[in-house]
């Protein structure tokens, strides 16, 4: 065992070496190593301090006080050095100048098709009104698509919907989602509130306003008391939400559909001119968006619902039409061409 004096000398030497080490250090990693060299389990100072218990009381106090002082000195020195070194690193990072106008293209998000976006918008609205979303077959029987909707085989109204036919008799790609009215009413007891989105097909030559395949949404409400005023209210609120414009009003124009009575075309305030009249609305201030009406009592009878107890309304339209108005798209055919130069104008997920 060393005597007190020699030990204190050794501790002083250790401190002097530490100060040299710290002064020479130019790197944070090295500084960490210096720290463990002087304060680690196997370091000289730790070992020395573990031996203090062997000295007498007076020496113990003196050695203890001295070694604590030295530890403090070294620690402070390391802290000082750490600050200097960190600042140097910070400065290095801070001093780098970048051109903030540059970009990378590493994050590529795709997009949902605009028709799907609009359809989601519509279904979300009606879901929030308490409607269920109904789906059904695209290939339908004549009965579901026409006859049950009050259109017999020779009904002149069939002229309005040029139909594709497939090999099997009386089976056809549905010309409208109104077939879902029938499927729903046969499956479910009133009260009924559904919205049915889906594809429909018509044998019409394609032009800027028509495609032989397109989308429709169909709404149906059957209840004991429900009327034209309710229909107008639901549609007004939904269209205001869809166009994000609470100034939109709608008006009903008398029309004819075999499965509703009364029947309407539904016009909304032209969102481009706010109803003042412009090119898009042919100076009418109104734009036709969908059709609707009160469900014809004969249709209710066809699905065994008593029209003396229940009545209801139905409406239907195309999301493409809403998109054309909302985004001023010139030609329906873009929707099915799938040119990314078109699709990436409507990015949304």
């Amino acid at each position: 065992m060393l005597d007190r004096k020699k030990l204190i000398n050794q501790i002083s030497t250790e401190r002097d070496q530490a100060i040299i080490d710290i002064d020479d250090c130019k790197d944070l990693e090295v500084l960490k190593k210096i720290h463990s060299k002087y304060f680690g389990k196997d370091s000289y100072l730790s070992k020395t301090i573990s031996q203090i218990k062997n000295y007498d009381k007076k020496d113990k106090i003196e050695i203890g006080q001295f070694s604590n002082k030295v530890k403090g000195e070294i620690q402070n020195k390391i802290k000082e050095k750490e600050l200097i070194l960190k600042n140097r690193v910070f400065l290095h990072e801070i001093e780098r100048d970048i051109d903030v106008t540059l970009s990378t293209n590493n994050i590529n998000i795709g997009s949902i098709h605009p028709i799907s976006q609009m359809m989601d918008n519509i279904t979300d609205n009606f879901k929030s009104f308490g409607f269920s979303i109904a789906s059904g077959p695209e290939i339908e029987t004549d009965w579901f698509c026409f006859q049950a909707l009050n259109m017999d085989i020779h009904h002149p109204a069939r002229d309005m919907q040029d139909t594709f036919y497939i090999e099997e008799n009386h089976i056809l790609p549905r010309t409208h989602t109104s077939s879902m009215q029938i499927r729903t009413m046969l499956k479910q007891k009133p009260p009924i509130r559904i919205l049915a989105p889906g594809k429909v097909y018509r044998n019409e030559n394609a032009d800027s306003r028509h495609s032989f395949m397109f989308y429709q949404y169909e709404g149906l409400v059957i209840d004991k008391s429900t009327n034209v005023s309710d229909l107008k209210s639901f549609l007004t609120i939904a269209l205001r939400n869809i166009f994000e414009n609470d100034k939109i009003e709608i008006r009903f124009r008398h029309s004819y559909f075999p499965y509703t009575e009364p029947s309407f075309e539904v016009d909304a305030t032209c969102i481009l001119c706010q109803g003042k009249g412009c090119n898009v609305c042919s100076n009418k201030g109104w734009i036709e968006l969908l059709g609707g009406g009160m469900v014809h009592p004969q249709v209710l009878r066809n699905v065994n619902i008593d029209p003396e107890i229940y009545q209801g309304f139905a409406f239907g339209g195309g999301p493409e039409r809403l998109l054309i108005v909302k985004n001023m798209i010139q030609d329906t055919r873009y929707f099915f061409e799938n040119d990314l130069r078109f699709l990436n104008q409507f990015k949304q997920i």
Partner: peptide
């Protein structure tokens, strides 16, 4: 990163 397309049935 996918773009949804809609083609004819």
């Amino acid at each position: 990163g996918g773009y949804e397309i809609k083609t004819y049935s």
